[in-house]
Computed example of a mutant assay.
Amino acid sequence: MMNRRQFVGTAGAAFLAGMPSAFAATYDLVIRGGRVIDPSMGLDATRDVAISGGRIAAVEASIAADAAATIDARGKVVTAGLIDIHTHAGRSKEGPFMCLQDGVTGWVDAGSGGADNIDAVAAIARSAPQTGRCLINIARTGVVTPTGELHDINAANVAMAQAAVERNRDVVVGVKARLSDNVAGENDLEALRRAQEVARTFNLPVMIHIGQNYSPLRSLLALLKRGDIITHIYAPGKNGILDDSGILRPEVLAAHRRGVIFDFGNGVSDHFDWDTVEKATKQGLWPDTFSTDWNANSKTSGVVDLPNVMSKFIMFGMPLNQIIAAATVNAARCFPAFDDRGTLNTGAPADIAIMELREGTFEFFDNYNSKRTGHQRLVPSEIVLGGKRVAKA
């Protein structure tokens, strides 16, 4: 027979067992002791980050409250989840998952699909574990390599593109036009005019891929509006951002001042060389956003991943907080679909990238297999998506 003390203890235990919330953890997850860099809040300091219900609950110097789970981020960089605005992740079902492993919690497929095949790309964006969006290629075929998709201007069918956007308004966030000479030739200006016609219908931005263009760059820039995006900004060769003397063209800076966004766009073929990067950055033209031009083979190319691409600019003296901004808050501002991303502000979705900033000797490559050696490199370590830790592949 139980005495009174035993009975009360047993009854109390049973009572508490029926009230699991009485002593529940304050937070679902706390990331402790990392170097939190959040340019959206002007923050670069050692902080704890608490998550509850899939959202940022607190960012403080020390969070003593208990948590259901913790991540030790001491010695690592903690940022909002990375956003890559120029990928081709929509080409395969595996693409979004591969990007996520690199810390990319938001991506845009930049023109893999046109009117003929955007539905398949859109379906992958909808089913992705993270936020995925698409730019529709003004060419109905989408990207065609190596011959290019705009040598026949009839491929740039405005009515078909408009109809394709209409049926995919939930994920199509802009229009893409690849305008390098080997893709469009003398059709570059007309293709851009048609892309803008589609964009105007839905109040969307246009992203243009430049590099070795047939037409002078000033003619292309004249057709761009505030919020439009130029990718592969450091492409060398004719009609690029530098004149024959290596001087930044004045119309480039004028376009930047009026709100055209300049995106790095690493890629693998003729999209940048070290010499152009060095000359342009010395004259003040830094990327607003970083992107990879990612595909499933990027790991074995000079791209590797978005943190590796970001690391290339540490070599050129770009401050780390500006580098982080270009892959988070700046990228988020390009498209309304990412309005609440790119920040660790309280209440924001808890998409977080944790990276190591390794010290050592690292080789980085441009698109011409030219090597430069840097001494710092960002490497993905942990990813949190929607408040949950992402399992490593």
Rank of each mutant, 00 (worst) to 15 (best):
A195R: 00
V175F: 04
V206L: 11
N203S: 15
V206F: 08
L204A: 03
N203H: 14
L204W: 06
K176W: 08
A195L: 10
I208N: 01
P205C: 11
T201Y: 11
V206C: 13
A191N: 02
I208T: 07
E190V: 08
N203Y: 08
V183P: 04
D188V: 00
L189S: 06
A199F: 05
Q196M: 12
A184D: 08
E197K: 14
D181A: 14
H209F: 08
D181M: 11
I208C: 03
R193D: 14
V206M: 12
L204I: 12
E190W: 00
H209Y: 09
G174S: 05
H209S: 10
G185E: 01
R178V: 07
G174A: 05
A177V: 15
F202S: 05
R200V: 11
D188C: 13
T201N: 11
R194V: 09
H209M: 13
V206Q: 03
V183G: 03
K176T: 05
K176G: 05
T201Q: 15
A177H: 04
E197W: 07
A191Q: 02
V198D: 10
L204R: 02
F202D: 08
N187R: 01
K176P: 00
G174M: 02
M207G: 04
N187Q: 12
A195V: 05
G174E: 01
N203M: 09
V198C: 10
E197S: 14
A199P: 06
L179R: 01
A177Y: 01
G185F: 00
A191C: 10
G185K: 01
R178L: 13
F202G: 07
R178S: 08
L192I: 06
K176H: 09
D188M: 04
S180A: 15
P205K: 02
N187C: 05
G185H: 03
P205W: 00
G174R: 00
S180N: 15
N203W: 07
V206G: 03
P205I: 03
E190N: 12
K176L: 13
A195M: 07
H209T: 05
R193T: 13
H209A: 12
L189C: 08
F202R: 08
V183Q: 14
N187T: 03
E186S: 15
N182L: 13
A191F: 00
H209E: 03
N187K: 02
V198F: 10
A195I: 04
M207K: 01
G185I: 02
L192D: 04
E186I: 12
R194T: 08
L179T: 02
R178I: 12
V183H: 11
V198G: 03
E186Y: 12
S180R: 15
A184I: 04
L179I: 09
V183C: 13
A195S: 14
R200C: 10
V198L: 12
V183L: 11
M207E: 04
N203I: 09
L179C: 06
A191H: 00
R200W: 10
Q196R: 15
N203D: 15
R193A: 14
S180W: 05
K176S: 04
V183K: 01
A195F: 05
F202Y: 15
L189G: 02
N182Q: 13
G185V: 04
P205S: 05
Q196E: 11
M207W: 05
V198W: 00
Q196S: 14
V198S: 09
H209N: 10
E190D: 14
I208L: 13
I208Q: 00
V206H: 01
T201P: 07
R178D: 06
P205Q: 00
D188T: 02
A177Q: 02
